[in-house]
Design a protein around this nucleic acid. Structure first.
Length: 906
RNA sequence: AGGCCCGUAGCUCAGUUGGUUAGAGCGCUACCUUGACACGGUAGAGGUCUGGGGUUCGAGUCCCCACGGGCCUACCA
């Protein structure tokens, strides 16, 4: 049977087929009743109306690598997918969408608007999950969840009501962050601070009944319209005589009291502060202490309101300009100074957040935080990388109450009802018919919804069936691990830890791995809105999803942000192509071999592969011994690396193994064996080749699922074997007696590699025609080394392109040849007179220098008594051995140099 | 204001408790279209680890200072 294999790996031809197959076969469906250790992971639910961006790609790659790896290690594995309703951003998207059609959402009304969003969700809401299927994420799609589904909504209500009953949720008038564009209150976390160059306006407030002025300094003159006092420090003698008097608020002609409060810093500004309780956090506190009126002078969308008198209707920043001009005209503006201050910006709209007094729902955090601090301190929840742990603890120890309500229409409606008569609050799981206090039937539900993070904070247990004690909950909770970006450590991770412990009594996960961010070349966070992001869907199409995954993984060192470039993607694509072509080599040659009557099944059936490596006449061929040893070592490093989230390290070793060891050396070495006229010998070679290839594919599978699945299916499988993903990952230690253990003979192959490389080096240096076979000589004073070369002569001649290699115990002639030396052997190729020796001489001189330095440094250290008494035995002995070798090498090198001097005199 | 991180080859980055001539990919140089692969092969060049000081037998790795870059937290008008 001749096999058709394309010359180049073409992921576009392969990926869609497998992606579809994996989903259709429900390959990754978990079984809560299955035996074995459990690996469970919930997805950080992406925005339901979003699409896959490069950050998801990294995150999902890491999750899927660990998921696939655990599955192949025999764990009962669940990767639970889902999406988030993402209150503000989704509402914004739909509002804009409606606006494009000329529809004002306010006019639609709440109910109709909600319908529109659900419609939008139905149309656009599966884009990201379809993309996840397309990139082959090994999710259990039967368990997909959505944070705003009826099922999840019930959990949200349950939690809200319980917290309210426990007294941890309350409603209060407070100073909050208001976004005039999103038209909602924001939590502290949603406000980003940015240092900006601003001004300090010094404004003269006339003191009533005197000719004096009290000068206040402010960064936001427009708020003065809402001033209800001026405050000075009680210890400030400059102003002591004014306390108790009234100031006349300019522009408003309102008399406001001059009060004394400790809050005022005498050194800052003028030492007198205008107090606007409704628009400044500090002023709010002062206002409460002094029972001042709170005058909100703005509208929801950031314009001045009726309380702003003549300025009503003007945008807040226009009002600022106008007020400054008006003050100037009145002669009440003393001066303007430069001042940098950190202003709060809304993370979504990038507008300046307006602090405002407002009645909202809050959650008390301290009692929730305490146990959540303890589990991290005790190490029950491990946070990786370590430095994020400290960040978490610092933040948690200074946690402040959480503003829960949002003035949106898209989200979990707050389950609180107010009776119109008495304003009693009824909080309930089911929509109540009557007021819980006065039995009034005239109820109105709170119009607001909950912060989106409230429902995502329940995600690890709400998705698994809590509050019911379902089989899923019993088996998969606590989840094993959470992988997410460090930028949402507080938003999300901390809240899941708190709510998880509070409601389930258990930790939500055993470990949190906080992955890096993907940045642009100039170091910024990639952003679609700024157009600085790379589109993973397009890149996957171009280079292959496997290449993308491998590329990201190979750069995903914990704690280091990633700068992605197409160069790197191309390099990963080349790796995929290399593997593809290794497979192509196998199958193209197999066709020829099968012609002799041996079928693929006999060489590579699962049970045949399982017993590798095979010996020929009870001797394991040298290259096989070496290769299977390398495979073992690679497996071991990979397993350790993956267990510690060191994706880059795992990627690097499998790359080295596959390309360097397997392709460059092993395949090259065994080529003649595969067609050996001794059929038995050839069969052994084939069996080992297939077995090694299969194991390498399984090792690589978590990183490159499509390619490995495709190639694995070319090997014969057991009946019913559906996927490489359901097979066992290679083990890094023998499971049974008689299993392969890498032996000392692996060093023999290393020696052979050395001599080949040295010969090639000489050839290149002498600029010999690559195809021209020449004779070489090798000398070693060690019998076993000479025997090794003699044993492996054919391979050496072939790979070093030699016509002959004479192995001798006699020193090589010093003149007329290029020599490479190691401490164990010398190898030499004679040259003709025409050779230019300058390059050779320069090279040797340089090496000589380096060697002398290395030797000197070791001699110095080894001669130092303190070093000998304090350094570990292992280091000293290693150093001595190396020193001995280097001395021999140096000696040989110097002989060579002096010989060269002589040679070049002619 | 407080805290954290980074500065290693032309570029992007590894380098786990301090220990023998500091690694990778890309790029570069030379040669090679050899029947798996030019998305390839072979060989090679290239850093003394931002600067200064210290601890140590020994520092890219630990400490201090400086310079440069980034991030987070924070109610100074």
């Amino acid at each position: 049977m001749a096999r058709e294999i394309a010359k180049t790996y073409e992921p576009q031809q392969i990926e869609p087929r497998w992606a579809e197959y994996w989903v259709k076969e429900e390959l990754y469906k978990a079984d809560a009743n299955a035996p074995g250790p459990v690996f469970s992971i919930v997805i950080p639910p992406p925005n339901v109306t979003g699409s896959l961006h490069i950050g998801h790609m990294l995150e999902h790659t890491e999750i899927d690598i660990l998921t696939r790896w655990h599955r192949m290690m025999g764990y009962n594995t669940l990767y639970l997918p889902g999406t988030d309703h993402a209150g503000i951003s989704t509402q914004r998207v739909v509002v804009k969408h409606l606006m494009d059609q000329g529809i004002d959402y306010h006019k639609l009304g709440r109910e109709e608007f909600e319908k529109q969003v659900w419609k939008w969700k139905a149309e656009a809401g599966s884009q990201i999950t379809q993309q996840m299927r397309a990139i082959g994420e090994s999710c259990d799609w039967s368990r997909e969840k959505f944070t705003l589904s009826p099922e999840m909504s019930r959990v949200v209500r349950e939690v809200f009501v319980r917290l309210y009953e426990e007294g941890l949720i309350y409603r209060e008038n407070r100073l909050v962050n208001w976004c005039p564009v999103c038209l909602t209150v924001l939590s502290d976390l949603e406000v980003a601070h940015e240092e900006r160059q601003g001004h300090l306006w010094h404004i003269k407030y006339p003191v009533a009944g005197t000719k004096e002025f009290l000068v206040v300094a402010t960064t936001r003159p427009e708020t003065m319209l809402g001033d209800t006092a001026v405050a000075v420090n009680p210890k400030d003698e400059r102003y002591a005589h004014l306390v108790g008097k009234k100031a006349l608020l300019p522009l408003m002609n309102r008399e406001i009291p001059i009060i004394a409060d400790e809050m005022v810093d005498r050194e800052f500004g003028t030492g007198a502060v205008k107090i606007t309780p409704a628009h400044d956090p500090n002023d709010f506190e002062v206002g409460r202490r002094h029972k001042l009126a709170e005058i909100d002078v703005m509208t929801d969308d950031g314009k001045m309101n009726a309380a702003a008198g003549a300025y009503a209707g003007i945008d807040r920043f226009e009002a600022r300009k106008k007020i400054v001009e008006d003050l100037k005209a009145l002669g009440l503006l003393e001066k303007i100074t430069e001042h940098t201050n950190a202003i709060g910006l809304c993370e979504r709209s990038n507008t300046i957040v307006e602090p405002r007094a407002s009645t909202q729902w809050f959650c008390t955090m301290k009692p929730l935080a305490e146990p959540a601090i303890a589990v991290v301190e005790r190490g029950e929840i491990q946070i990786v990388p370590e430095n994020r742990r400290q960040e978490y603890l610092n933040w948690m120890r200074n946690i402040r109450d959480w503003t829960l309500s949002r003035q949106l229409w898209w989200g979990h409606r707050i389950p609180a009802w107010y009776c119109k008569e008495n304003k009693h609050i009824t909080v309930a799981r089911e929509t109540p018919a009557k007021c819980g206090t006065c039995r009034s039937a005239n109820l109105e539900q709170d119009p607001d919804v909950l912060d989106t993070w409230f429902s995502s904070g329940l995600w690890p247990f709400s998705t698994l069936g809590w509050p019911e004690n379902t089989a899923d909950f019993k088996t998969y909770y606590p989840t094993t691990l959470l992988i997410t970006g460090y930028d949402i450590l507080f938003f999300w991770v901390a809240r899941m830890i708190m709510l998880g412990i509070h409601f389930t009594g258990k930790i939500a996960f055993h470990a949190v791995y906080l992955h890096s961010l993907v940045r642009t070349g100039s170091g910024e966070k990639m952003s679609k809105t700024k157009g600085t992001g790379l589109d993973p869907v397009a890149l996957n199409q171009q280079y292959g999803t496997d290449a993308m995954r491998f590329c990201l993984a190979s750069m995903a060192a914990p704690g280091t942000d990633i700068v992605l470039s197409e160069d790197k993607l191309a390099s990963a694509r080349n790796f995929a192509n290399k593997i593809w072509n290794a497979a192509r080599f196998l199958f193209v040659n197999l066709d020829k071999f099968e012609a002799g009557g041996t079928k693929l099944e006999e060489l590579a059936a699962p049970e045949v592969r399982a017993k590798a490596p095979y010996a020929y006449r009870s001797i394991l061929p040298l290259a096989d011994e070496w290769l299977f040893g390398r495979l073992m070592a690679t497996t071991s490093v990979m397993n350790t690396a993956l267990a510690n989230y060191r994706f880059h390290e795992a990627a690097q070793v499998i790359y080295q193994f596959f390309w360097g060891d397997f392709c460059d050396w092993y395949i090259e070495w065994i080529k003649p064996e595969l067609q050996n006229s001794d059929r038995e010998r050839a069969v052994v070679a084939w069996k080992n080749l297939f077995a090694a290839f299969d194991r390498a594919l399984r090792l690589l599978h978590p990183f490159m699922p499509f390619l490995t699945e495709e190639l694995w299916h070319q090997l014969p499988q057991r009946l019913g074997d559906k996927s490489i993903a359901l097979n066992e990952s290679p083990q890094d230690r023998p499971k049974h007696n008689g299993d392969f253990i890498a032996g000392e003979r692996a060093n023999e192959f290393t020696r052979v590699q050395e001599v080949i490389t040295h010969v090639r080096n000489i050839r290149a240096e002498l600029k010999l025609d690559p195809r021209k076979k020449v004779a070489a000589e090798v000398y070693s004073s060690y019998k076993d080394i000479r025997e090794q070369f003699a044993r492996n002569l054919d391979g050496i001649l072939r790979l070093a392109i030699l016509s002959d290699l004479s192995v001798s115990a006699d020193r090589l002639p010093q003149e007329g040849g290029a020599v490479r030396s190691t401490s164990l052997f010398d190898v030499r190729i004679a040259y003709s007179d025409a050779v230019d020796l300058r390059a050779e001489k320069a090279r040797l001189k340089k090496e000589n220098e380096g060697l002398q330095k290395a030797i000197a440094s070791k001699e110095r250290q080894l001669g130092d008594e303190t070093f000998r008494s304090r350094a570990p035995e292992k280091i000293i002995r290693g150093m001595e051995a190396t020193l001995a070798e280097q001395r021999i090498e140096l000696h040989k090198l110097q002989d060579r140099l002096s010989q060269l001097e002589k040679d070049s005199q002619f």
